[in-house]
Design a binder for these strands. Structure first.
Lengths: 197, 197
DNA sequence: ACATTTATTGGCACCATCTGCCATTAAGCG
DNA sequence: CGCTTAATGGCAGATGGTGCCAATAAATGT
């Protein structure tokens, strides 16, 4: 089976799982139930997701990866803030509204569901690693250097807070203004942060 | 039973668990085994620790709480960096060498053991909340404000990177120089960071 | 088109994690 | 010393998660 097919399958299961998680909570949603909703056997489900909470990964990584791509495409001569305004909105337009809603609902869920929060934080750390690579290359420094890692971690922290914020703000339905506000919030915070670079 | 006794009991179990985790890995260490090593029934063990990985909490919180206390005692008129130099070392002296080693070994373990990393990150977020409160009070701003949370998150990120770093550096036994280096690393990073405040 | 190999799936058994319930024991107290 | 209350331990059970093997589907060779 191709990687692409596998990715689609995982994403499909992910959507079902997230819906169930939101409807009845993570603990009350069994692996069997998710498998049934997605139309696969329980055994296959556990093969696709070694832990129940990783069901949120495909949806979340879609967003995280997209953001990482934006950062990676950040031209050397442009301020990050401008690049963000340029490249971030089309990215959000490309994703389906349902997926955006789903992602934000997961972020909201992470505040009450310990297991989800843990999975979410792990994912963020993977994103942080990607960010570290990009920063290291841009600054021409080793990616395991202390300063580079601190910068990446700080940027990642900004993103985390901003994401929590936008998820909270979009609780009653997401609008273009909410997302633009989100982008601007990130941009300003990153500008403040970048004064230390 | 008094809270103090309960705390001690948890800490005791924690030490056994961490030793076993380091010796044979988290997955290969069963709750039954930890309970046996700590001299309690399995049922009681699960009462003390709702999840196996939370065994590392008592040891880790000891350190995290201590750091939070230092930050909380940070006098308004003194730079954080100076306060750290003043207050951080006695704190490390107060803790037993074994506990410091244990904490660092846990931090090292978190790099290979997903479950532990998750628990560790959750704990760090609790510390971040504490930090947010302190910062909010010092700056006279609401603790749920965006800027305060960003600052706290960034400081927390610095601490995370520095802690990973010192744990790595102290792999072959911890020395006073290592810890002092750690403190200075935090201090410098925080100073750089504070230019944005 | 057919046979063969190979990857994916599902079913089953199994261990580990974690919880609810109740009996037992220990601790605090008049 | 009796009484009350809290902590403990044992047991059953649901769920999470894995290894193993058979069945099936997909890719490949002829």
């Amino acid at each position: 089976m191709s990687d692409e097919q596998r990715r689609r399958q995982r994403l499909d299961i992910s959507r079902h799982a997230v819906r169930l998680f939101a409807e009845q909570g993570v603990a009350a949603t069994s692996g069997e139930q998710i498998a049934q909703a997605a139309g696969v056997s329980e055994r296959t489900f556990w093969r696709y997701f070694p832990q129940k909470e990783s069901c949120v990964e495909p949806l979340l990584t879609k967003m995280v990866d997209a953001f990482c791509a934006v950062v990676r495409a950040w031209p050397r001569e442009i301020d990050l803030i401008d690049h963000l305004r340029e490249a971030y909105s089309p990215l959000l337009d490309a994703a389906s509204d349902e997926d955006i809603e789903a992602v934000l609902s997961v972020v909201r869920l992470t505040h009450g569901e310990r297991a989800l929060r843990a999975a979410y934080l792990m994912l963020r750390e993977r994103a942080e690693d990607a960010l570290t690579e990009v920063l290291a290359e841009r600054l021409g420094r080793p990616s395991d250097g202390f300063d580079v890692r601190v910068q990446a971690a700080s940027m990642s922290a900004v993103l985390k807070v901003a994401t929590d914020e936008v998820a909270r703000a979009a609780a009653g339905g997401v609008t273009t203004e909410t997302l633009d506000g989100h982008r601007e919030q990130i941009a300003t915070a990153l500008r403040d942060l970048s004064q230390m670079l």
